[in-house]
Simulated assay, not measured.
Amino acid sequence: MKIRYLFFLMLFCYSCSKNEPRKPINPKPSTTLYKETIKEAISLNKIEDAKILQLIKNDSTKIYLQSSQGFWYTYINKIEENLPTPVNGNEVIFEYEIRNLNDSLIYSKENLGIKSYVIDKEDFISGLQKGIKLMKIGETITFVLPSYSAFGITGDGNKIGINQSIISTVTLTNIK
């Protein structure tokens, strides 16, 4: 019995001492790929911003404001009364349309219909999510959204392409 015990003890000790760590099958990805991707994104954003700034410069009839979230907007119908703006959890009802930077209609108000959206609780165009929080009932605002605040690198899978900036005119009709 002692011999068996001694045999298993020696087997156990020798088998543990010779384990070598396995080498990874796939080596770690190069950090240069990430750096290149970031440089490319920055370059694309600069090009988009230049196009948007040119559009704003050419539209001298309106005053555009830049938001801290990276989009521009101008009031078409501004309400001067001290009315509330939507906050987290409010349901808003609005109409909107989407145009490209050449001012060609992509989706009309009729195509999109009346939209109901719960602030910060539902998925929607990120720039418009933030922009609607600036609005009062009855106001109409035109938002100029760079692609990273609109549909991003995927587009909408239909009429809006990848990395496409958009113009959206929104009329807020109700806050619940």
Rank of each mutant, 00 (worst) to 15 (best):
Q66G: 00
F124T: 07
G89I: 04
G127N: 03
D59N: 12
V92T: 05
N77E: 13
N77L: 10
G113C: 05
I119D: 01
K109G: 11
Y73E: 05
R99L: 15
K133W: 09
Y73T: 02
I79H: 07
L65C: 00
W72V: 02
T61K: 12
E81Y: 05
L134W: 00
L44M: 04
Y117K: 04
L134E: 13
N100M: 03
L134M: 14
L65R: 01
Y75S: 02
G113Q: 09
K51C: 04
E48L: 03
F124S: 02
I93C: 09
Y64W: 13
E80R: 08
N82W: 05
Y64R: 04
S116M: 10
D59A: 09
L55G: 07
D120G: 08
N111S: 12
K78H: 09
K136D: 11
V87I: 15
D123A: 08
F71S: 15
L83M: 13
Y96A: 10
L53I: 08
N82M: 11
I119Q: 05
M135C: 07
N58W: 05
F124P: 01
M135Y: 04
Q69I: 03
Q54E: 15
G70W: 12
K133E: 13
I93K: 13
N111V: 14
V92C: 08
E122A: 03
P86V: 03
D123F: 03
N111H: 03
F94S: 02
L44I: 10
N88Q: 03
S68H: 10
L55M: 09
K62I: 06
K115S: 12
L134F: 12
L101P: 15
N82P: 13
Y75W: 02
T85V: 12
K57G: 06
K115I: 15
V92D: 00
K46W: 00
E80V: 06
K136Y: 07
Y96N: 10
S104D: 15
E95M: 11
I114H: 07
G70E: 09
S67G: 07
T74I: 00
D49C: 01
L105Y: 08
I125G: 05
D120A: 09
N88A: 05
I52R: 00
I47P: 10
S104I: 12
M135I: 07
Y73M: 03
N100E: 02
G113T: 04
F124Q: 01
I119C: 03
P84L: 13
M135L: 12
Y117C: 06
N88D: 05
L44C: 02
V118P: 06
S43T: 11
L44D: 10
I47H: 06
E97R: 12
M135R: 05
I132D: 06
E95I: 07
E48K: 02
N102Q: 14
P86M: 05
N100A: 01
D120P: 07
N77P: 05
G70R: 05
E110W: 10
L55K: 15
